[in-house]
Simulated scan of single mutants.
Amino acid sequence: MLKPGFVYMMANRRNGPIYIGSTSDLIQRVYQHRNRLIEGFTKTYHCCLLVWFKAYDDIQEARDAERRMKKWNRPWKIKRIENGNPDWRDLWPDIIA
């Protein structure tokens, strides 16, 4: 049986630092980032806005996508965000609704 997963991007403002991660529990992981419970990049750069995410049927697929996306240059990441979220709106309310 496959375990679903997500790839997501966090930022602290439009065109600010961008963090890419993957998880099997998007709500829990974004909550952790928003409340600075995870040491590292998102805590250091205050990346607490969920600006993009994509669901996958398999967590391994999500992890593979994360690894590929981390190699992207910044303009590609920005384009991905702005294709679905041109205002860099925080998507947190959408996932907890």
Rank of each mutant, 00 (worst) to 15 (best):
R34N: 10
P75D: 00
M1Q: 14
H33E: 05
P93H: 03
Y31M: 04
P86T: 08
K77E: 10
A97P: 07
E66A: 06
R13I: 03
T42G: 09
F41G: 07
K79G: 09
E61D: 12
R29Y: 02
A65G: 02
S24T: 11
F6D: 01
N73H: 08
P75I: 02
G40C: 01
I78Q: 08
T44K: 14
P93R: 07
T23P: 01
D57P: 09
N73Q: 10
I18H: 01
Y8R: 00
R63Y: 00
F53I: 08
T42A: 10
G21M: 04
D87M: 15
F41S: 07
G5Y: 05
L91N: 06
G21D: 02
V7H: 05
N85Y: 04
D94M: 01
R63L: 02
I59M: 12
H46M: 10
C48T: 15
E61P: 07
A55E: 14
Q28G: 08
I20C: 02
L2R: 15
E82P: 10
D25H: 15
L26I: 13
E39P: 12
D57H: 11
E82K: 09
K77A: 14
M9Q: 10
R68V: 15
I59G: 11
A65S: 00
D94I: 12
R29E: 02
N12A: 13
K77M: 13
R29D: 07
P75G: 04
S24L: 05
I78T: 09
P75E: 02
G40K: 00
D25M: 13
R13Q: 14
M69G: 02
I78F: 03
T23G: 01
I59Y: 12
G84F: 13
I27V: 12
L26C: 01
I81P: 10
N12R: 13
N35P: 06
Y56D: 03
G5N: 07
L2G: 10
N12I: 05
E82H: 05
Y19E: 01
I95H: 02
I20Y: 06
N35D: 09
W76P: 05
W88D: 04
T42C: 11
R29P: 05
I95T: 00
N35C: 07
I20T: 08
R34I: 09
D87Y: 15
C48N: 14
T23W: 06
K70I: 15
M9N: 10
R36I: 09
